[in-house]
Nucleic acid binder design. Structure first.
Lengths: 205, 205
DNA sequence: AGCGTAGAGTTAACACTGTTAAGTTAGTGA
DNA sequence: TCACTAACTTAACAGTGTTAACTCTACGCT
């Protein structure tokens, strides 16, 4: 016995190897500039082997992004768990989100800036475990903390969280796609976004 | 004489016909799902004819988007030219921007959410006449009006405008790509974005 | 009137793409 | 030793953007 297990381990190993190769190429050249044949070349297998482990190119990307965003969730989790002023903590979370997106532009693009293919199962995607949903829940938690601490007025927390998400997503995606736009300064825009959004919510009726 | 002119007119006509066909297909199916051959089929010319009028597919898209964003600039121009409270006017402009993006998702995506191809001439692009720059100048103008009317504190107008742009771009692009996300309500998010951003800037130190 | 030429539009081809069906080959359990 | 299974490969399909080389029409000029 144990032969089945060994095989399963080997299979998992190759699967991870494909994932790593794809990730590296996606990061360097972007999803649409990486072909299945190039990924195959990198791991020295034939292109069709990839299809044994992944349904298609989109699923391969999806898995790569899942890995990456696990790291974002970890980071946010760390920040949101720290003690101190909840408003400052929320701001730090917003900034961490933006900086994560800029540090992983291709992955960020893939998960939040690409149109879903037709016939995509959104029902399933927007359940608890999608990267959007997970990162999003940190916002609602952060806001609730602020309200409970009396630092923010009572409000529709979901609406406020969605407003926050839209704001930080805007800065992230704009800094990614319009890298050469004459920005006043990357850090200035990032901090201004966090400050303006939080101040705006604090001042809401 | 006049024959040269007539030819030029005819040439311009076909050029516009290509542009219209491409626009319709881009709007319906999105840039990457439209092939040069399909555009050619629609106008009943051979695919290579398009290359006589446009350098490549990207330039075709660029021209299509230029047309569309001409309409946005017109709309913003109308709103910003109206009398009344400058703060309300600015908010109306922000909302109009978002709604325009949602109404033209494929064009919006193409101009603001796509990575530029390698070797793209950014210097030239970020001059006065790029769609981003034109729409952007409305923000600085709107903000200056608010400050002059004493409705907003003195501030770095460029930084504030970039913050605003990031905010409204975020809402626009998120509503486009994550259409099926359980939003509290499209209109609610749109208005909340505009209110939060403006309030946030008003409350800035 | 007839010739040469410019240029609009064509056909055929290249080098790619994602993906699938069919085939090979190695290693297992009986 | 044999059959089977799972891993992997080869060959192919239908499509992509794009280019080089060609045709053909209509104009201006002699």
């Amino acid at each position: 016995m144990g032969v089945k297990e060994r095989r399963a381990r080997q299979k998992k190993f190759l699967r991870q190897e494909i994932l790593d190769a794809a990730s590296e190429l996606f990061v360097r050249d972007g999803y649409e500039n990486v072909s299945m044949r190039r990924i195959a070349d990198k791991i020295e297998y034939s292109p069709t082997t990839i299809y044994i482990y992944f349904k298609d190119k989109a699923e391969l990307l999806e898995q790569v992004c899942k890995e990456t965003f696990g790291r974002l969730v970890q980071r946010l989790s760390k920040i949101m768990g720290q003690p101190g002023d909840p408003v400052e903590r929320l701001k730090r979370g917003l900034i961490a989100y933006i900086e994560f997106g800029i540090a992983n532009p291709h992955h960020y693009r893939a998960t939040f800036m690409m149109l879903f293919p037709e016939g995509f199962d959104h029902e399933k995607y927007h359940k608890e475990d999608s990267p959007g949903m997970q990162a999003f829940s940190f916002l609602t938690r952060g806001l609730t903390d602020c309200i409970n601490a009396g630092k923010m007025p009572a409000m529709n927390v979901d609406l406020a969280a969605q407003t926050l998400w839209a704001g930080i997503h805007g800065t992230t995606s704009l800094l990614i796609t319009h890298r050469t736009f004459p920005w006043v300064g990357r850090d200035k825009v990032i901090h201004s976004t966090a400050d303006t959004l939080v101040t705006g919510l604090q001042g809401a009726a």
